[in-house]
């Protein structure tokens, strides 16, 4: 379903993955590594916050294999994200780039709204 949707706009891409928006289902699609996951807007924001709150210093300093990786289970997902230190950095980069563009989009929409009947 995700691949065939024609209303998909790419929000941000890095070599490690991408974030797209589907205007038809009002959702965001995150592709990272071999996982593709679709999020409702509110869950996407929450997921971004959770990724950003991963304690990198703790991961670097840790010698146990338990805290070597961060495990995140997005809402309504079938698979969880198991992130190593590099994965976490890459995902943070991807999500903050996406967040920047989404906020930019909000600002543009806000400016255009008075001139449009529907947006």
């Amino acid at each position: 379903m995700i691949d065939t949707c024609i209303n998909i706009v790419e929000v941000f891409r890095t070599v490690h993955g991408s974030v797209s928006q589907c205007d038809k289902t009002n959702s965001y699609i995150l592709e990272f590594g071999d996982i593709t996951n679709s999020f409702r807007a509110t869950d996407f924001i929450d997921f971004t916050k959770r990724v950003n709150s991963i304690d990198l210093v703790k991961m670097i300093l840790s010698s146990s294999s338990v805290t070597d990786v961060a495990v995140l289970m997005p809402p309504y997902a079938e698979r969880c994200f198991v992130l190593t230190l590099t994965d976490t950095l890459n995902l943070k980069e991807l999500l903050s780039g996406a967040k920047f563009n989404l906020h930019l989009n909000s600002i543009i929409c806000e400016c255009l709204r008075p001139h449009l009947y529907s947006i």
Binding site: C109, E110, I119
Partner: peptide, 14 residues
């Protein structure tokens, strides 16, 4: 592109 963030809430993140 729709502004999904604004559709979700009128509150800014801050």
């Amino acid at each position: 592109m729709k502004d999904l963030l604004r559709l979700r809430t009128s509150l800014s993140e801050e």
